[in-house]
Amino acid sequence: MKRIVIFGGTSAIAECAARLWVARGCSVFLVGRNAEKVEAICDDLRVRAGPSQKIGSAVADLNDHEKHAALVKSAEDELGGLDVALIAHGSLPNQTECEKSVAQTLAEINTNALSVLSLLTVMANYFEPRGNGAIVAISSVAGDRGRKSNYVYGAAKGLVTLFMQGLRNRLAAKGVVVVTIKPGFVDTPMTKDFEKKGFLWAKPETIAAGIVQAEERRSDVVYLPWFWRYIMLIIRHIPERIFKRLSL
């Protein structure tokens, strides 16, 4: 069964995905920065797992890029090899504060983009010589077009999306799949300050099921739920001279 390392394993979406993978007999290794949360999730997964499945973890702030290679090594050692990496960590910047502070803007870009690029690179170099593996990362529909309400986050996610596109191209011939996940609005701790009403809001369980399926199908780019593909198609095609006047 598959051996899966999850970066940002305490994310609500990632936790749901981990449960689904464990239910399918996979082994998982979680990396998160909050030791208590990591432990609670691992306990839960251990109860769900069968005797032959392994559940491991490490505590690390993923903004420490130098640690990434070592984290991958310990995940590999613990699980006896790796087949899938899910990169799920992220934060939702306070846009207005970012506008006032360059430092904060760069910090958010670091968390949501640079740390992800580092992990993508480390994982790509891990899987490439082995000729197999899947790298899945959660980007966002917000990365499809810059908008005044959250362009710092959007720019970071857009960078991740574009980087993954190139990586996919690089690894396509090498048997390694690169899956870009673009969720719409999801009801998780990240969006706790939003009024969550209406059909646009999805449950983390739904997104997680889409992630597990996308990995299985070796998809390239997946919007979750599916209708966001069409919403974003429209949004991407609004001419800039109109778009710049819109309040989105």
């Binding site: 609670a40 999730i41 306990d43 839960d44 109860v47 769900r48």
Partner: peptide, 15 residues
Amino acid sequence: NRFIQFDGSTGVLRC
């Protein structure tokens, strides 16, 4: 909604 511990020999579940 997390499980905490299950002992398959005694049937004690903490969640």
